[in-house]
Amino acid sequence: MTARTFELRHFHDIEPAWDTLIELYADVRADRLHDPHYSVERYAERLARHAHEPGWEAVIGYDGDEAVGYAYANTVEQDDRYWKRITSPLAEPVTSVATLALKELGVRVPWRKTGVSKAIHDSLLTARGEPQATLMVNPEAGDGKVHDLYVSWGYQDLGVSRPSPDSPVLTDMVRALP
């Protein structure tokens, strides 16, 4: 499906976006909801915590009136626990500047492979002032295709981390922002 009347809306406050983000997450991650780490309840806990962190922003993409995808991020500083969870030694320049941490990006199945995820991603990153962005990806997601997609968007591997005891081991990635 192609986006005909695709619109991107930015949110800096969680209240007007909460229900839509929860609904999108449940649909996008429907195949993983049986795993406690990916449950809607755990997502809601993470979303509530992240939404109150510095620099939180979400972008929701709409095709007409239908929400089709989302991303959200916040700013992490040099001493943030985000960096401390990465098991590989990190180069000082990577952690010495404010960084946009992309926490979630998801698109409903009918809109995948249409450019919607890149449009949402780019809209979120372009609106920011941080010099770099980072994200964590499950290296097995989509048989490695999700990782490869991020590489094609300019991200490079940094190391690995496990954000919580029941989460999978994730690959941390970083890229410079224009």
Rank of each mutant, 00 (worst) to 15 (best):
residue 160 V to T: 15
residue 78 Q to I: 03
residue 139 P to W: 08
residue 84 K to Y: 09
residue 95 T to H: 03
residue 123 S to I: 01
residue 16 P to Y: 11
residue 17 A to R: 02
residue 91 A to H: 14
residue 126 T to L: 12
residue 104 E to K: 05
residue 124 L to A: 03
residue 129 G to H: 14
residue 106 G to V: 08
residue 155 Y to Q: 05
residue 61 G to C: 05
residue 94 V to F: 04
residue 121 H to P: 00
residue 98 A to L: 08
residue 10 H to C: 02
residue 164 S to Q: 13
residue 62 Y to E: 02
residue 161 S to N: 14
residue 27 D to N: 10
residue 30 A to I: 09
residue 120 I to W: 00
residue 125 L to C: 12
residue 130 E to R: 07
residue 174 V to Y: 01
residue 129 G to R: 14
residue 28 V to W: 12
residue 83 W to Q: 10
residue 36 P to Q: 06
residue 84 K to V: 09
residue 167 S to T: 08
residue 79 D to P: 10
residue 61 G to S: 01
residue 172 D to C: 15
residue 51 A to V: 11
residue 152 S to E: 03
residue 144 G to R: 07
residue 22 I to D: 07
residue 47 L to V: 06
residue 10 H to A: 11
residue 113 K to P: 02
residue 87 T to D: 09
residue 100 L to P: 10
residue 115 G to A: 03
residue 172 D to G: 12
residue 41 E to N: 09
residue 2 T to M: 12
residue 25 Y to P: 02
residue 93 P to W: 03
residue 88 S to T: 14
residue 40 V to Y: 08
residue 31 D to V: 08
residue 130 E to A: 08
residue 49 R to F: 11
residue 87 T to M: 05
residue 100 L to Y: 11
residue 117 S to W: 02
residue 108 R to Y: 06
residue 152 S to N: 06
residue 38 Y to H: 15
residue 164 S to K: 10
residue 78 Q to M: 13
residue 161 S to F: 11
residue 56 W to D: 00
residue 131 P to E: 10
residue 97 V to Y: 04
residue 161 S to I: 00
residue 112 R to Q: 15
residue 164 S to G: 09
residue 178 P to F: 06
residue 93 P to M: 05
residue 119 A to G: 01
residue 29 R to F: 15
residue 52 H to W: 06
residue 168 P to H: 12
residue 163 P to R: 12
residue 149 L to K: 07
residue 86 I to E: 07
residue 100 L to D: 11
residue 101 A to R: 14
